[in-house]
């Protein structure tokens, strides 16, 4: 029996020791130069954060999104979509309604049922499109590493006197394609003050952060819930496709915190090819 016992101990020790990666500090990687160039065409990534003000785990997810933004700079664009059960209006201080028709539609159509959840360029990684925050970082890393196939330029003109916002989007593809691509344009507002449920003391007060700032909030789908076709015919490489929009900024929105994001997506699978953001007062 002694030899069996020794053999078993040796086997256990082998599995235990060979299967261990004990990590020493620092545990967090240092941000590198990931800001993206001014001139060159770079692949940008859209992280959609489905959230709500009574969702206790959402502030930690928003912080994670912020950490990724710090790491990837302008290569990463964040859009917080307030939708679902946790975004419903309740008694004060949770009486702020940040839901939108567009956000509600995406929430239902993409089958978001738990919060926080996210989509990275609305792409499938395995057979999951909507994922928990634990999967955001590696998926963003993968999406950022893809060679760009299209570019977007946004021009905005904002008139403070009548709060009129003019938007011009130029889209350019690097290759000819017969696939259908749509352009979606959205209006975002950053740093909206309000209350937020929270269970992570490292992010803020628990159970409620009363002076929370809701970041990168989707305010409106400028050209509907699913945008419009880039062109009626086949897409030709290096041709500029221009779309123009005009809207009046809601009186409650702070123009200095508003931005326009535009993304091109393939209609066959909804995957986003390229995304761009521009602050309206830039």
């Amino acid at each position: 029996m002694k030899k069996y016992t020794l053999l078993l101990i040796a086997l256990l020790a082998f599995i235990f020791i060979s299967g261990c990666d004990k990590i020493d500090p620092p545990y967090v990687n240092t941000p590198g130069d990931n800001g993206g160039g001014e001139e060159e065409l770079v692949q940008k990534v859209l992280l959609e954060d489905y959230t709500g003000h009574t969702c206790v785990n959402c502030p930690a997810a928003a912080k994670l999104a912020g950490d990724l933004k710090q790491l990837y700079g302008e290569k990463l664009i964040i859009m917080a979509v307030h939708a679902g059960y946790f975004a419903e209006v309740e008694s004060p201080p949770f009486d702020l309604d940040l839901r939108t028709q567009t956000g509600n539609s995406w929430n239902a159509d993409f089958g978001v049922i738990s919060y926080p959840s996210g989509m990275i360029n609305r792409g499938f990684f395995g057979d999951r499109r909507v994922v928990g925050k634990g999967d955001w970082a590696p998926r963003v890393a993968t999406a950022v590493g893809i060679d760009p196939k299209a570019g977007i330029e946004i021009e905005t003109t904002y008139n403070e006197s009548d709060r009129k916002l003019e938007i011009k989007i130029d889209s350019r593809f690097l290759e000819n394609t017969n696939e259908n691509y749509f352009l979606q344009v959205c209006l975002l507002e950053d740093s909206i003050p309000g209350a937020q449920r929270n269970n992570d003391a490292s992010v803020g007060d628990t159970p409620t952060i009363t002076d929370y700032f809701h970041r990168h909030v989707l305010r409106k789908g400028v050209n509907g819930n699913y945008g419009e076709a880039v062109t009626a015919g086949a897409i030709v490489a290096n041709e500029n496709y221009t779309h123009e929009y005009s809207l009046n900024l809601n009186a409650d929105y702070k123009a200095k915190h508003c931005s326009v994001i535009a993304f091109l997506y393939r209609t066959s699978d909804n995957e986003i090819l390229q995304v761009e953001e521009r602050h309206i007062l830039e």
């Binding site: 235990f16 545990y27 990687n29 970082a137 963003v140």
Partner: peptide, 10 residues
């Protein structure tokens, strides 16, 4: 990209 994670956890 954010964390230095253990690939083998026992």
């Amino acid at each position: 990209p954010l964390f230095n994670l253990p690939e083998n956890v026992s």
